[in-house]
Amino acid sequence: MTEDKILLTARYAEGDLNEDESAAFETRMQSDEELQQHLKDYQHIHQSLKMQLANDANDERFKNTLKGLNKQYFRDEPKVISFKPALKWLTGVAAVLIVGLLVWAPWRSNLYEKYANNGQMLVTERGAEATTDLDKAAALYNEKNYSAAKTILEKLYVKEPANAMLGYYYGLTLLETTQLDSGRKVLTQIYTGESVFKYDSAYGIALSYLKEDKKAECKTWLQKIPKGTTHYQQAIELIEKL
């Protein structure tokens, strides 16, 4: 009996019954729980099997979608580089060293040399007829023999303290020979006066402070140099670097 029912259910489900037989099956099923269960089982088994066997084009497409995403989410991720503890320490130490180096900045000592007043002392107003003391001083100054130039300029400056040019170069030679305070005093006088050397003097003073690594003072003096003067561009650059 059971065997008949299973086959009957299969034929019903597969549309192998004719119309009358089919209608009779449905009527019978309403009161026959066994048939109801057979039909359920049939559909369950049929679909489960279909799931395993079908693999149609859509299933393939779906699996391809998964494959693509698998690559993205399980494989092609950027690897997080994890340092070993020792390496971590090393990088820390290296970072500290670099920061320290930036603060200490040994190459900064070159700033003075880079921005130092390497201008030539020009004595244009003099004629060529005789070599004066001023000419000698200028020659020595230009040869960077500052102490010899200083000796001559000092005498001339004492004679003509109002001569801004003499004062300016005398001041610079003082600075170059590390008589910073007296040099600054001379230059400050020129700065407070009115002459073409006014702002050149300010620049000289600023650099004298740079030489001593007194950055704040250096800055203050650099900031006194207005736009349009000889040393303005240098002053701006130097302020930035400080």
């Binding site: 086959l7 259910t9 299969a10 192998d16 088994i45």
Partner: peptide, 19 residues
């Protein structure tokens, strides 16, 4: 088509019995 329906019903019935 008729043969397919008949044969498939029989085969499925055999399968269900096996299960």
């Amino acid at each position: 088509y008729g043969y397919l329906r008949k044969k498939k019903s029989e085969c499925m019935a055999s399968l269900i019995k096996l299960v």
